[in-house]
Design a protein around this nucleic acid. Structure first.
Lengths: 227, 227
DNA sequence: CAGGGAAAAATTTGATCATATTGTGATTGG
DNA sequence: CCAATCACAATATGATCAAATTTTTCCCTG
């Protein structure tokens, strides 16, 4: 029926035109994912209205959305904060991530052409630079972008959404891990993924993704239980 | 530090004391899941403020949350509606549900005692009654409750949350399927699940769950592509 | 007289609403 | 058939009320 306009909503250029609550949502999401907010840190509505310079309604809506995403938790007494993960939480996320994201990789493998893979490799090269430079924020951004780009070719919105939801949950804690161990010791199975993509071997891509996830999450688990 | 009061927030008795936006969220969730709102139907803020008798702020927050859940979709031009699923959507949900919910079943199997299983069987008996009576609303409620109760024993909040999110997505469409085919032809592998639970065979429980999901979702897929 | 604890006041934060503003879709006239 | 206008719905703000935490003060006890 109404297949008229499929307006691309993710364009960075026209970000100004988006409603305020969307803006606030994305701003907060970045802050949560890439560091500025640490796990356990309380988030207040009024604090955000002041620091972001918008009214409370958009802030409230963004916070509700992020709570539903699992990126923030409601602490009972109307308090909201960035979640602290338990070992049990991480263990479940390992299972879920491997189940969902391996499948996303598998599907992406059959859809990506050479240029797509080149772009992915370019991301990975920049990622390597961030690791050697010890730029934690840059590492987190590009690591996320690597997986995001891969999964966007899976042509599977529902599964991608589930994966994104999981990233929002463990994002803040990943940051803490990097802060502790540094970026040097971080695992990187991305090369295997790219090689398998070029070989058109979907099964190998899925396997490599699973290993990448398992290694990264294990590291996170170790840091959490020891800290 | 502050391990003082762990106030049980899920008590039904003091549901009155919950903030309005929570109330609205749960009310809307029920309406979406169990019928009152059909896929494709537009949802307006002002319509809800009138019909529910609350201000627009709580309604807005509930809607944002449900959009994040995938239970409602933002149609671009400030329009919100109940989602219409495509065959591709359903196919992804089948994969995700089987991955996540089989695991939930597997974990629940090792945690449930005889009384728990009895309670589950009681739900299933009431469920059967609804099917023979052709009570679609009752069927949807109890079917959801059956799985919900099972998964609640898995002691896995993150995985349960992912599952719940999926239910919110396909809930409305399941209703439509029942409206079309009636409740008579609905599959029911619940008996297999209960038998396997009593036998303490976690692997068989997981298998039966996967079959239950596959059968139900296939039926939904057929109804969607034909209609 | 000093220290600790409980009660009460004050401050901070959240929840809700009423209202103004802006943007979108529809309708009508050219 | 296109364009300008009109009406309605959504967005956003600020004000107001309620709840919770924190601080302060006062009393009791050692």
């Amino acid at each position: 029926m109404d297949l008229i306009k499929n307006k691309s909503s993710d364009t960075k250029a026209e970000a100004e035109k988006r409603p305020a609550h969307e803006q606030v949502y994305h701003t907060l999401k970045s802050k949560i994912m890439y560091g500025e907010l640490v796990p356990g840190q309380p988030v207040t509505i009024q604090g955000l209205t002041d620091s972001l310079g918008v009214g409370m309604t958009p802030v409230r809506e963004a916070i509700r959305r992020l709570i539903s995403d699992g990126a923030l938790v409601f602490q009972g007494n109307r308090r909201v904060s960035v979640p602290l993960l338990s070992g049990r939480d991480v263990e479940q996320m390992i299972f879920a991530r491997i189940s969902i994201e391996s499948e996303l990789s598998r599907r992406a493998a059959t859809n990506m052409n050479t240029e797509d893979i080149d772009r992915l490799e370019h991301i990975d090269q920049r990622l390597d630079r961030m690791i050697t430079e010890g730029d934690v924020g840059g590492y987190l951004h590009l690591n996320h972008k690597f997986h995001e780009m891969l999964y966007s070719h899976a042509d599977a919105l529902i599964l991608s959404d589930l994966a994104e939801r999981l990233w929002l949950r463990f994002g803040p804690s990943l940051r803490v891990v990097c802060g502790r161990f540094g970026t040097q010791s971080l695992p990187d199975r991305h090369k295997d993924i790219i090689t398998a993509l070029r070989a058109q071997d979907a099964e190998k891509v899925a396997k490599a993704t699973a290993q990448d996830i398992a290694q990264g999450m294990e590291l996170m688990m170790d840091a959490l239980v020891s800290g």
